[in-house]
Nucleic acid binder design. Sequence first.
DNA 1: GATTCATGGAGAAACGGTTCTTCTCGACCT
DNA 2: AGGTCGAGAAGAACCGTTTCTCCATGAATC
Lengths: 385, 385
Amino acid sequence: MTAAANQSGRRPTTSRRLERAGIRDVAAAAGVSITTVSDALNGKGRLPDETRSRVREVAERLGYRPSAAARTLRTGRSGLIGLTVTTYGEEPFTFTEFAYFAEMARAATSAALGRGYALVVLPASSRHDVWSNIALDGTVVIDPPDQDPLVSELYRSGVPVVSDGKPGNCPVTAWVDNDHEAAVLGILDHLSEAGARRIGLLTGTSTDTYTRLSTEAYVGWCQRVGQEPVYETYPAHDPAAGAVAADRLLARPDRPDAVYGLFDPNGTDLLAAARRYGLRVPDDLLLVCCSESDVYAGTEPPITTLSLKPRRIGTTVVNLLIDAIEGVDSGTGVDIARLFPPRFRTAGTGPPPGTLMPTELIVRASSQRRSPRTTISPPRPPGEV
Amino acid sequence: MTAAANQSGRRPTTSRRLERAGIRDVAAAAGVSITTVSDALNGKGRLPDETRSRVREVAERLGYRPSAAARTLRTGRSGLIGLTVTTYGEEPFTFTEFAYFAEMARAATSAALGRGYALVVLPASSRHDVWSNIALDGTVVIDPPDQDPLVSELYRSGVPVVSDGKPGNCPVTAWVDNDHEAAVLGILDHLSEAGARRIGLLTGTSTDTYTRLSTEAYVGWCQRVGQEPVYETYPAHDPAAGAVAADRLLARPDRPDAVYGLFDPNGTDLLAAARRYGLRVPDDLLLVCCSESDVYAGTEPPITTLSLKPRRIGTTVVNLLIDAIEGVDSGTGVDIARLFPPRFRTAGTGPPPGTLMPTELIVRASSQRRSPRTTISPPRPPGEV
DNA sequence: GATTCATGGAGAAACGGTTCTTCTCGACCT
DNA sequence: AGGTCGAGAAGAACCGTTTCTCCATGAATC
């Protein structure tokens, strides 16, 4: 009864100290209604400037901070965007693992911030009770595996989802990806022009879109030009396995005279392997790898790299997501169409709209037998930005 | 009047379609009250198992997901922890920039997840309206600058704050840091033992605690042993400036015969600079740098590194924070003391409790003129874990 | 046979905002 | 002079939970 008595009764005037000031406190202090306070602070309603500034001043003086939870509950908007990152194995997870993801995440964070949203890091292996307990306005998913239960459920419960990497079976609102096929074909053509007769590939064992599309493009190209595919695979998340695989590739009886490595450290690994086998680069072996690192400008020789432009991807993904969040009022997903110019959309009604971003091939000494040119344009640049 | 009529009246039985099922829908479908539903799903109240499972089943069938916003509003807990990352310059920000931060952030994310919390990435330069609009249970702040307004306000509004890096003037609930002074002294002693007569330092221009403490420890050591300090500074966030500073240091007339570099890339930079000046490592120049990268195991020669053990730091920071969040009921910050064993606490009532974590010196060829030993223990190991 | 007591469950008050609706009052128009 | 109109502001519903309080009911106790 003692404590209970305090609790009943509509806020006993001025009890409960030590608590943060609420909108009611501001209203009382300013001698207006809470409606007026809300309107004044949010720039709504019809109020003379004088009232507005007076309320603002009182709120400031009281150190008033609106409750994010209450606002979210009422408005249905939290200002939070999930950043779903892939996990390898049990506890640790990528993101910050490869330069690509790190850059992409940074760009995404900045872009979200610029539009008033914050990012919640959400490992794909998160316990269900954790992420289902967060009010998300939308989710960015990095490189979704074929059947991601987290993504599926989010999508099903009406949360917009935009993925970096063309999704397999996951339903998503939209997706952004590099034109991996065009990129690989461009590299293979580039190596051919430089005199390669048998081009090898260093690729991964995982089933993500990047690995799959790139490898398929390679195999297809081989069929077309009549070359037997020469490739080695390894688990990309294992840093030590890459060096071993590079070694395997160069140890083959049908040793390639040019190699493209799909992952960041492949350049260093291949260079080391070539040295072990006494192969000169680029004279005996042409080299290209996919990397965002500029250390390859300083290696001996400098190595040609393919940049996936992660900043651009991260920015685009977030902007598409926020467009979807803010463009669709609620419930019916009608005017998503507006967001995607026809040229970016795939087919009519079926698959979600996707955007292909161009890559950039940075040509250095390792892939040329002639005099080096500088940066050249990517093959088939599909988009703007 | 048309739409308004729908809105009044306590939820007109079964209108509003397309909406997600709420607790009321579950209650109605299960033929119980919402109290019972809430209790059944949260394992509270006195309910027979039969009711509990029946309610759970109905909830499952309806795809019921409790509203995070409503729950947060009612309980005052969001399950969200801010991860405040430093920003250099305008738009971009660190975190993922250095291996240390990346590792630390990963460990922090994992640790938080394991205890049911998710991390919100919160650049220090965030617009006020963004982060003040997020319901945070607490905040991790990485390497707080002397006067961080974001941190100050969070702390003032009652949100627990734990910092990685001993805070300058920021008020924090607790902090965790490496024993930078002990680490630097240990390295200097180590180099002295290896025969160094004049030890140089490559350090940063910024005012963060790490840089400051390390530099001060170095200068103090110099005074004590009677050596003139020999150091060069550069803006640590500028990747190109490091190489230039390394060059400057070795170009000095009072060229050191041993160097400790405070930042990750310094090892490579110093090695390259030494080569330019025809200095052999370790014969003419002893080298140590602070780094989390294992590339230094493979350089020629392998370079001795100091590891700050970021995983351990990240895990500890998060656990301390969550302890503070869950340990203190609300309002009065009484039993924080319980969380910090006396040996970890600084002084009595004044400064916030801090924990010093040991570092690890990984000795390799670059800092030895004799036969190499392997990993040695850190100097003055203060803590457990 | 009248009190306890434990059990199972319902009612309703918060939580702290936003926003729809309504009310008042003076100026203006006809 | 009566009615309209718009500005200014207040009232109150509502967002969807959690949780405190209280009410039945039947068994056990005295």
